[in-house]
Design a binder for these strands. Sequence first.
DNA 1: ACCTGAACACCGTTCAAGT
DNA 2: ACCTGAACACCGTTCAAGT
Lengths: 236, 236
Amino acid sequence: MTQQTQGARRAPLSRERVLDAAVALADEAGINTVSMRNLAQHLGVTPMALYKHVANKEQLLDGMVDVVIGEIEPPSPSGDWRPAVRNRILSARRALRRHPWASRVIESRTTPTPVVLGYMDSMIAMFRGGGFSVDLTHHVMHALGSHLFGFSQELFDTSISLDPDVHAAALSQRSDTYPHLVEIASGAAHDQSAAGPGCDDQFEFEFALDLLLDGFDRLRRQGWSPPGRPRTQEAV
Amino acid sequence: MTQQTQGARRAPLSRERVLDAAVALADEAGINTVSMRNLAQHLGVTPMALYKHVANKEQLLDGMVDVVIGEIEPPSPSGDWRPAVRNRILSARRALRRHPWASRVIESRTTPTPVVLGYMDSMIAMFRGGGFSVDLTHHVMHALGSHLFGFSQELFDTSISLDPDVHAAALSQRSDTYPHLVEIASGAAHDQSAAGPGCDDQFEFEFALDLLLDGFDRLRRQGWSPPGRPRTQEAV
DNA sequence: ACCTGAACACCGTTCAAGT
DNA sequence: ACCTGAACACCGTTCAAGT
């Protein structure tokens, strides 16, 4: 829509142009349309021209993630760790929501890029600066998980409790098959103050985030330290 | 390894045989080797024969997830919701860990199957039976997210703080680039009571799980109820 | 009625051949 | 030295043709 395909043909290809075009294409037509061949066509070049700027498709996807992570606002210089962390994560969420494909692509990455490492490093710095021990910061970063990047594991959450289809199907056909699920779905639905299909994603995200931050804060205040020597050896 | 490829040729194809073969193939050779064509070859049939038993590849993946979910132990008839939920989730984790490809495939599903809905319904039942309100149960299920299925968003966690490669690379080359990340990695590494590459996944999982369950329990005891009327209208 | 070979419209990537 | 066309080894899926 907002991105022009023609006219771009003249500018020399660069890694940045390739990545920006890939992000724009994914935004407009979905991540499935981002193939090396299709992206090349959109840029008016031959597929192999892309390989001058990205080693392979994996690196293309890494670069696309970097573009999105780059949109996250830098840490506010606030003195209090809790609102600072909270705001940064909510900024990450806004960036991720601008690019609906991004959370899925982030999930699929196996090794972090320097940009991602930098983001994590700065998040760690916020906890350390807020008085968290090295050990507690470590566990806290793990516990945040995908919240770090502004998304919770949505799985099919939106379809579970609130997608009109599933909702209707559940209520009509299978209230005897999944009685508890239907009860939850109904409960969410009759609260019509929530926006959209019956459930407020933003509320759910902040609910979980604040629950975690509350827990972190409690452990920090209690001076949490790792449990005794012998941890779980092997869990299988 | 444990699965025979030859000899299976005689038994008539069935949905169950197709799914079991797909799971075994993914376990042995990775999810990337599970293509309709390759799976068919392993079963000694033509690719199109599979389409008699699964509508398409998406349904094949759905069925594979169902096989894994089916391995989760049923709820223990315990009276106390907390250990019951905890044990069930740890059972889910054990099932998922037997099939390393499963968490990624679960993440990629867009609509839940009846088997998945049944699992969620029974989890909801445990909270409701434990005295959680409909609303609180709803949020609690969202907050659990991927923990419901026994995995946290691992992202590249194992590589972040503890993969020998990243660890060594970080420590040697980039302690000035990612100082806080390196501090966390070192902290985890010098605690050699942890198993494996320097970080105990099981410990991290249980740390986050117990943090969430603590939070849930606190809200339940406090008689949590939804905040006032006007929620976030639209967050973008 | 059941099964399947060939074909279609794609992939990511290599590599030798063009300019 | 730079770029690229054709080719390779794959995909998921359709569909008409075989038995």
